[in-house]
Design a protein around this nucleic acid. Structure first.
Length: 483
RNA sequence: GGCCCCGUCGUCUAGCGGUUCAGGAUAUCUGGUUCUCAUCCAGAAGAUCGCGGGUUCGAAUCCCGCCGGGGUCACCA
C-alpha cells in the first residue's frame, strides 16, 4: 500500500430505517480513522433497493450522525468532489463500468427467470450443497438488452488476503460465483456498486460488518476483473443483542441511537461506549474523551469476537460523565427533562435542583422521578407510609407522638434559620444534641416530611433549595397528618 | 449441508511462551461516609482461560482434532 495515500473512509448505509449501535460503530470507526489521519469521512447513501427503502430514513441517518458529532466532509446534503453521494443518482456510472465488463467478456445476461433460479437454489439446498449460480452458467447467453439481470462472469480461484481487523484470511475457489451486478430494474447491486463507488471516490479503507466477509472473495475477483486496486479492508465483528446469541438487529428490538439520546444518554458517552465495545487501547483506561479516541484508536486493536451490548455499562458510563460536567452545561441539557411544573419556577431554582441531583443522575429521563418533590407537594399518603416504613430500623421504634414531637421541635428551630446550608447544618446539629436524637431518626423524619420520597438529595441541600416557605409549610402539614 | 470467522469472571476486556493460571472495569453482595437514594472509600464473591491431545524445561498464549456460537450461500445491503 502506498503509505502517502490520503485516508478517505466512508459510511455507506442503506436508507431502510434508523441506525442502531451496530451501524453507528461502523460509522464511528471510519470517522475516527479519518480524523486521526487528517483524512476525509464520507457519507454515501446506498439506495439501490427501492422496495426496502423507508421514506425519510436518509434524513434520520444524517440526524443521527450529526447528533453524535460524526461530521462528514462529503455527502449527499453537502456535496463534494466525488459526488453524487446517493447511488440512485449514479446509475450512469454503474452502467459505464458494467459496459466495460460486458466488452471484456466478464459480464453476461442472465437468461433465467427468477423462478428458474429459485429452482436451482432449492435443488442445491435439498442436496445440502451451497448454491452456485455458475454451475448453471449458460453456454450462449442472449444479447443483454437491459431487461435481464446482468451477471459477473467470475474466474473462480482461491484467495489469501489480509484484513486490518481479522488478520490473514483465505478461501478456496468454491466460494466464487457469478453474482448479479445490474438488476433487471436497472439498479446495481451493492456487490457491484460499492466497488465502483469506492474506487471512484478514492476510498482508502472499507470498514464494514462481518456479514460481508463471506462475499469478500467475490469482491476480490471483481477488483481483478476491473483491473483496479482494492482499498484496505477492515471487517468488524458483530455487536450482539443482550442475549448474546445473535447479531444486534432492528428486528430483535435494537434501539435507535436517537432514542438513547432522547433518554438522556450523552452523545459523547454513546460514542465512548460504542468505541470501547470491541476496542481498547491496551491500558486500563475505561473512559475516553472524543479527542482521546481520535488519538488512540487503531484498527489492529479492534476485537475479532463479537461483543454483547450491555445497557447497564452504558448507564454507568453516562453517570460518570454527568458527574464530571459543569453545572451550567448540565442544566442547559437537562432543563427540558424536569417535571412540567418546573415551568412555574425560575431558572435559578431549577438549576439548583439539578445541581444537587447531579451526582445521582444516570440519564436525564430519570429527572422527573428524582426531583418531583421540588415542584409538587408531597402526597400525604406517601409521607405517612414512609414514617411507618418497617424497613426503616430507626424510625420503627418511635410512635406517632414521638415523631410529631420531633417535628414540632424542628419547626421551632427552623423558624429562626436563614435557610442557608451552613446555618441549617448548625441549627439542626444543635437540635440533635438538645433532643438527644440521632441523625438516623431526626434527619430521617425531616427528610420524609419535606420530600415524601423514598430518595432525595442530602438533607441540608434539599432544605436550602426548597427554601424556608415551602419547607416550613411541609413540616407543618406533616404534623397535622400525625395528629 | 458447504465455506468463513469467533470462543478468558454474568457482561466489556488485559494478556500475545516464563517478574501475572490470570489483572482492570461493570454488574452483584458486605462494611464505612451525620438521614434515604446515589456518590466516594474499603472489602467479598466471581474465569480449572470451550474440551481433548500434542510441541516445549515451561502454554490462556504455538500445532492438531473436537465441541459450541455466529456469519454467509438474494435481482438486501
Amino acid at each position: 500500500m502506498n503509505s502517502a495515500k490520503v485516508v478517505r473512509t466512508r459510511f455507506a448505509p442503506s436508507p431502510t430505517g434508523f441506525l442502531h449501535v451496530g451501524g453507528i460503530r461502523t460509522a464511528l470507526y471510519a470517522w475516527l480513522l479519518a480524523r486521526q489521519n487528517d483524512g476525509k469521512f464520507i457519507l454515501r447513501i446506498e439506495d439501490t433497493d427501492k422496495a426496502r427503502e423507508v421514506a425519510n430514513s436518509d434524513q434520520h441517518i444524517i440526524d443521527s450522525l450529526n447528533a453524535l458529532g460524526l461530521n462528514y466532509d462529503e455527502g449527499p446534503d453537502i456535496s463534494g468532489d466525488y459526488g453524487p453521494y446517493r447511488q440512485s443518482e449514479r446509475i450512469d456510472i454503474y452502467k459505464r463500468w458494467a459496459k466495460k465488463l460486458l466488452d471484456s467478456g466478464r459480464a453476461y445476461a442472465d437468461p433465467y427467470s427468477p423462478a428458474e433460479v429459485q429452482k436451482f437454489r432449492e435443488t442445491a439446498q435439498k442436496n445440502k450443497q451451497p448454491f452456485l449460480y455458475r454451475n448453471h452458467r449458460p453456454n450462449n447467453p442472449p444479447e443483454w438488452d437491459g431487461s435481464q439481470p446482468l451477471r459477473f462472469k467470475s474466474e473462480p480461484k482461491g484467495y489469501t488476503w489480509s484484513d486490518a481487523v481479522m488478520g490473514n484470511l483465505s478461501t478456496g475457489p468454491e466460494v466464487i460465483d457469478d453474482f448479479i451486478i445490474l438488476k433487471s430494474d436497472g439498479y446495481p447491486t451493492y456487490n457491484f456498486a460499492h466497488i465502483v463507488d469506492d474506487y471512484e471516490m478514492k476510498i482508502s479503507h472499507i470498514i464494514r460488518g462481518q456479514e460481508f466477509l463471506a462475499s469478500t472473495p467475490n469482491y476480490l475477483n471483481m477488483y481483478e476483473a476491473l483491473g483496479i486496486e482494492r482499498p484496505i479492508l477492515a471487517t468488524m465483528p458483530h455487536i450482539l443483542g443482550p442475549t448474546g446469541n445473535k447479531k444486534l438487529s432492528k428486528r430483535d428490538g435494537a434501539k435507535d441511537v436517537l432514542d438513547y439520546l432522547a433518554d438522556g444518554i450523552l452523545p459523547t458517552t454513546l460514542v465512548n461506549f460504542i468505541a470501547s465495545l470491541g476496542w481498547n487501547d491496551g491500558s486500563e483506561q475505561e473512559v475516553f474523551s472524543v479527542p482521546e479516541l481520535i488519538e488512540k484508536f487503531s484498527l489492529d486493536r479492534v476485537q475479532k469476537s463479537g461483543a454483547r451490548f450491555d445497557e447497564k455499562r452504558l448507564t454507568w458510563m453516562n453517570g460518570v460523565e454527568i458527574r464530571s460536567m459543569d453545572i451550567d452545561k448540565l442544566y442547559e441539557l437537562t432543563k427540558d427533562y424536569l417535571p412540567e411544573e418546573s415551568n412555574n419556577y425560575d431558572n435559578e431554582y431549577n438549576k439548583a435542583v439539578v445541581k444537587i441531583t447531579q451526582e445521582r443522575l444516570k440519564y436525564f429521563k430519570e429527572l422527573p422521578e428524582l426531583t418531583q418533590f421540588f415542584f409538587k407537594e408531597p402526597q400525604s399518603k406517601e409521607v405517612l407510609n414512609l414514617f411507618q416504613d418497617p424497613k426503616n430500623k430507626q424510625l420503627k421504634k418511635l410512635d406517632r407522638k414521638q415523631i410529631n414531637d420531633l417535628l414540632h421541635a424542628t419547626i421551632n428551630t427552623l423558624e429562626k434559620s436563614s435557610f442557608d446550608k451552613a446555618d441549617l447544618e448548625s441549627k439542626l446539629n444543635q437540635l440533635l444534641v438538645d433532643k438527644q436524637s440521632k441523625p438516623g431518626i431526626l434527619f430521617s423524619i425531616i427528610r420524609i416530611a419535606v420530600s415524601g420520597a423514598p430518595a432525595s438529595p442530602q438533607l441540608f441541600d434539599t432544605l436550602q433549595v426548597l427554601g424556608k416557605d415551602k419547607s416550613m409549610e411541609r413540616l407543618r402539614k406533616a404534623t397535622e397528618l400525625l395528629n
